[in-house]
Computed example of a mutant assay.
Amino acid sequence: MEMQNKLAIYRTHLRKLGCPEVTINSLKHKPEGKSRPAFGIKKPRRSEVNYCPPYPIGESEKSLESVRMELVSDVKKRNNREAVRMKMEKTFAYRRQEVVRDAPMIKDFQARWPALFEVGEINAEFKRITTMPLQSRFLSRLDVHSEKLIRLFKNRGGQIGRRLGGIIAPMDEDDDVDLRRECVIKALCVYLNEDPDNLLREYVAADESLLQESIEETTMGIYVLKHRDASEKPEDIGIVLESQIVMQDLDNVPLAAAMLFGLIYSLNLNYPAELKYTFEVLQKVVMELEGNALSKKAQVLKNRLYQ
């Protein structure tokens, strides 16, 4: 109890000093006209070490906005990656407060911060938020668990077992590591009683109208645009958020899954309800971010993996 009181006093002092992470979570800072004291309270939920950091010393909203405007033009220039990286680093707190405080629409945010929607910058932003690498950790930890996951999939019986068998069957014909990772991710959805079509959908290149219609109905997901000859490499792999294509021309589905996971952190998005267990396992079991508090379904899977 004494420690709890000390922490409460400490947070009060931080609030008086204007610490944004404490101020934004204050019960006194609620939307006008809302009677519920906890309405809209924003808190770090997924091990975000830098959830809502303060501006760098000597910087203000006005000065960082001018840097942001420079970034919009810098990202269009060739061979300018280092300048973009430095300015993205400098404006991290400004961008983060905008995401957490205002929860902007994806379309508006992408127009303001186009540099963020690239593989390198999503990796960098995720590390700024969690202090952990994204792409390398996501793929390597998925590989670590793959063998045991595949064994669990093969041992599952009934209708789900048959469906799992169909998903992982291509791995027996092709030892490509990216195909293996893709099959494991899709099978993980099914194993957790969720539909992988809510995460990943495939289309034939000729069905552009169907693709566009599906994108307009998608809140969050990955699309794969294939040639009529399914044996060829996909024509395009991309990510959709709020009915907008935010990333295209990704190399493979596992990379797209890692980038989608990173965008959820970067944009402070909720996990989609129809995939909440899949993303929970990816976060807490695969990435090992806040892995002590799991739902019953995720805990059962984790126990089986570590038997």
Rank of each mutant, 00 (worst) to 15 (best):
A124L: 00
N25Y: 05
W113E: 08
V281E: 10
S140Y: 04
A256Y: 04
Y306W: 08
E290Q: 15
A206K: 07
P31E: 05
D176L: 00
P170E: 02
K233M: 07
E147L: 13
G291N: 14
E213R: 11
L301R: 04
E182M: 04
N50P: 06
M247W: 03
E217T: 13
V240I: 15
D102N: 07
E125T: 15
V240H: 02
Y223T: 05
E2Q: 14
L275C: 11
E70A: 06
V144P: 00
E32H: 13
P114M: 04
S60M: 02
D74E: 14
A124I: 02
V177E: 10
T91S: 15
P53H: 11
Q283K: 15
F117T: 06
A257E: 10
R45P: 02
N193G: 03
R163T: 11
Q110R: 15
H145P: 00
P254C: 05
A83L: 06
V75T: 10
N123K: 15
Y94M: 12
V240F: 04
R162K: 09
R141F: 02
S214R: 12
K42R: 14
V67I: 14
L134A: 13
N155V: 06
C189T: 09
P37M: 02
V75N: 03
Q299T: 04
R45W: 12
K62A: 15
Y271M: 01
K42T: 10
K6W: 11
L116I: 07
N79L: 12
I106S: 07
S209H: 11
L225C: 12
G262V: 08
M247D: 01
L269I: 10
D207I: 01
I106R: 05
Y94Q: 08
L260H: 10
A205S: 14
N252D: 10
E235T: 01
E82I: 10
V100P: 00
R15E: 13
L294H: 13
G291H: 07
L267W: 04
T12W: 05
L263P: 09
L200Q: 06
K90W: 05
P170V: 05
L211A: 03
P254F: 02
K284R: 08
R162W: 00
M69L: 14
E125R: 09
S140F: 02
F109L: 06
R162V: 00
N79M: 03
V75L: 03
